[in-house]
Amino acid sequence: MSDATVSATALTSQYISQVASDLERNVKEQERIAEELNTLQAELTALQHDHGVLVNMQQALGVPTPPAAPSHANGAAVPTSSGKKATSTSGRRRTAKADAVKSPKGKKPAAAKSATRRPAARKVTGPTLVDLIRHHLIEQKEPRSAAEVSKELSDAHPDRTISSNVVRTSLENLVARSLVQRNKQGSSVFYTASARAEATTEPKGETQRNADK
């Protein structure tokens, strides 16, 4: 007998043994599952019998509507202890979607309308705070601190709310634009108008006429 024949015979024997082992394992698994199914079926039959007995007892006690037997279909309603069917989550989603479709097209709910309303912005008349600061420094002969500028502008314009923090920020912005110069004396900082600010400033009368337009 050649080596090829011996090798083929050995491989065939190995396959036969493997198939027989798998077949035996399959049969045992089927028997185990069948036994479990029989046990579960017996338990279900006993529960159904007890359910019928309990329903008959409720009817004998005068209960008008006994609870229905539970349904095993996916997504079906499950009876509650009060006998009413609980609505599934998918059913609530479908109901909400139907209500949304029934809503008039193009109309927003009242809550959404109120949320979209915005109070009208107050219209500020006259020059801006930055312009006031720039003109004020141009008119001064000596450097001014941010607190001094804030107080002097508040006294000159009592109808406007002028914050010292906002004035300080505006002064630093003017420094960045080379319209104001910053001078530090010890721990204090003082500001003066630059030559560029004076060159780009309109006459006071012209500024007032532009503000009145």
Rank of each mutant, 00 (worst) to 15 (best):
P67A: 05
T45W: 06
A68G: 05
A76W: 10
A77K: 14
M57E: 14
P66A: 13
A68R: 07
G62Y: 12
D50H: 10
L47G: 00
S71I: 03
V78N: 08
H72N: 00
L61R: 04
A60V: 09
A46G: 00
A46R: 05
V53I: 09
P67W: 02
P67E: 05
A60N: 11
L44M: 14
L44G: 05
H72W: 06
P70G: 07
T65W: 08
T65S: 13
Q59M: 05
P66C: 06
P70H: 08
T45P: 00
T65C: 05
H72E: 04
H51I: 10
L61P: 03
A73M: 12
V55E: 09
L61M: 14
V53D: 07
H51Q: 15
V63P: 01
A60H: 08
Q59W: 01
H51E: 15
G52D: 15
V53R: 06
V55K: 06
Q59D: 02
Q59S: 02
G75T: 00
L61S: 13
Q48D: 15
Q48V: 09
A77L: 04
L44K: 07
L61C: 15
A69E: 13
N74M: 07
D50N: 09
L44W: 14
V55Y: 01
N56Q: 11
P64H: 11
T65L: 12
L54W: 04
P70C: 05
V55D: 03
L54F: 10
M57G: 00
L61G: 12
H51V: 03
P66Q: 08
L54D: 02
T65Q: 12
A73G: 00
Q48K: 13
P66H: 06
P66R: 02
G52E: 12
A69P: 01
G62P: 05
A60R: 03
T45L: 11
A46W: 01
A68K: 01
N74T: 02
P70V: 07
A68T: 05
V63G: 01
L44Y: 11
A76D: 14
S71V: 02
N56L: 10
H51Y: 15
H49A: 12
L47F: 09
Q58N: 05
S71Y: 03
A46P: 00
V53Q: 08
A60Q: 12
H51N: 14
V53G: 02
A76Q: 02
N74L: 12
T45S: 15
L54Q: 04
V53T: 12
Q58W: 07
A69T: 11
T65I: 12
V63K: 10
P66F: 12
P64C: 08
V78R: 11
